[in-house]
């Protein structure tokens, strides 16, 4: 994006969008590496979705989706869904209908579990899925 190697069409995704901060990209990267990747994903999301809103709290204070640390694969599904109730409420309160998740675990929990359990009526995309669906393919290679 910075080097203009890809061009993004920002008219495709018109729903109000929000960005979910995965614990490992944000809070835990900040602790482990001294840099939390909070802004990078937002810059990319906003380049595709001009209609954007943040959840509260966000960034370092964001709530986990509930499926991190291997919980998506653990045999504790009721606990995992209960865990996700705060995430579900955050999404409902911000009013977004498109949630961008840059992590496999988070995306699966949001799309396949919380969306149904809490009747959120949202669309969930990976960050790179959003970019792929927005990228303009050059006509001449």
């Amino acid at each position: 994006m910075r080097e203009n190697r890809i061009t993004l069409d920002n008219t495709i995704h018109t729903k109000l969008a929000t960005y979910h901060d995965p614990c490992n990209y944000g809070r835990k990267s900040l602790k482990a590496f001294g840099h939390g990747y909070f802004e990078e994903g937002r810059i990319i999301t906003r380049a595709c979705c001009p209609s954007f809103v943040d959840m509260e709290p966000n960034r370092n204070g964001n709530y986990c989706c509930g499926a991190g640390g291997g919980a998506w694969a653990m045999p504790y599904a009721p606990e995992r869904v209960f865990y996700g109730r705060i995430k579900a409420r955050q999404i409902q309160e911000c009013g977004a209908k498109m949630v961008i998740a840059p992590c496999h675990n988070c995306r699966d929990q949001l799309k396949k579990s919380l969306n149904k359990e809490f009747d959120l009526g949202i669309e969930v995309k990976y960050l790179w899925e959003l970019v792929s669906d927005s990228v303009i393919i050059p006509t001449k290679k």
Binding site: C23, G61, A71, Y83
Partner: peptide, 15 residues
Amino acid sequence: SSWPWKCTMCGKCEE
């Protein structure tokens, strides 16, 4: 105990 496996190690507590 099953606690360490129900925890997602999200780090909210430490923060």
